[in-house]
């Protein structure tokens, strides 16, 4: 496959970025998207054309949440329910032009090229994405029996890998799907219940402080989430938030 790549290049967080066009020939359709970028980088280095293109990646099997590129107008590219590393070049055609951009959101500043700083998510987690009872040994897995359906539901919400595709896809750069997934995974299980009210209040407050937008129920997040978190999580977050505000005396 011969491809034309339009890639966002930005020296550092403060520099002004721009798009650079690269031609790449003889790419195998079986190659993964990140391998294709590896090949590009090798060429850039070997032929002494430019500095390699920086992009985040780690596990390359869709579970770490590190990779995340905005490819032709969609986070993680044209496939549903996959991360960028799981995307293969067979999804493109010979002669295609592929535009690759970093996530765009005020709380996710670009560090270099296609790498963005997603520590905003960590800050939200620090506000309540945990249960604070930490004493004692590791509890037995089935010490508290939980119905299978509820356990599955909580597991689905917990499957968020924190890649930030929801924010990248959202027209408002809202982090509601991320926050709702985290709130849901605890709310659905008994261990998370005692801190449910304080958790949702603090996490939403942090989310707003960091400058994420609000949810306009466009559900681009749901369409782009590689772990296919559902919009019902956001409804649950809203519900929990109302409950926390109205029914709880937690400040």
């Amino acid at each position: 496959m011969n491809l034309t790549l339009k890639i966002w290049r930005q020296e550092n967080a403060k520099a002004k970025g721009h798009f650079e066009t690269y031609k790449l020939n003889d790419i195998s359709p079986e190659c993964s998207f990140l391998e294709m970028l590896d090949i590009l980088n090798e060429q850039l280095i070997n032929d002494n054309i430019a500095h390699p293109v920086c992009f985040d990646n780690d596990c390359r099997e869709g579970i770490c949440g590190m990779c995340g590129l905005y490819i032709n107008g969609r986070p993680h590219g044209p496939d549903d329910g996959v991360t960028t590393c799981q995307l293969h070049m067979r999804r493109f055609h010979d002669g295609d032009t592929i535009t690759i951009e970093p996530w765009r959101a005020r709380p996710f500043p670009v560090i270099k090229d296609l790498v963005v700083d997603r520590s905003a998510f960590d800050k939200i987690i620090q506000e309540g994405g945990y249960t604070s009872a930490t004493t004692g040994g590791v509890p037995d897995a089935n010490a508290i029996p939980i119905p299978k359906r509820k356990a599955d539901e909580a597991m689905d919400s917990a499957s968020c890998i924190g890649c930030g595709a929801c924010v990248a896809a959202c027209k408002n750069a809202s982090a509601m799907l991320f926050v709702s997934g985290k709130v849901s995974q605890y709310t659905l299980l008994p261990q998370g219940k005692p801190e449910a009210a304080i958790r949702v209040k603090r996490m939403v407050k942090k989310m707003d402080e960091l400058g994420f937008g609000s949810c306009t129920n466009t559900f681009a997040c749901e369409a782009e989430c590689p772990k296919q978190l559902k919009r019902t999580n956001i409804a649950r977050l809203n519900r929990e938030f109302i409950c926390a505000k109205v029914c709880s005396d937690e400040k």
Partner: peptide
């Protein structure tokens, strides 16, 4: 919400939305 994304995308959004 507009302020939450000061730099926009070059390619307009193609996600399936409501």
């Amino acid at each position: 919400n507009r302020a939450a994304r000061p730099v926009g995308y070059a390619v307009s959004q193609k996600s399936k939305t409501h």
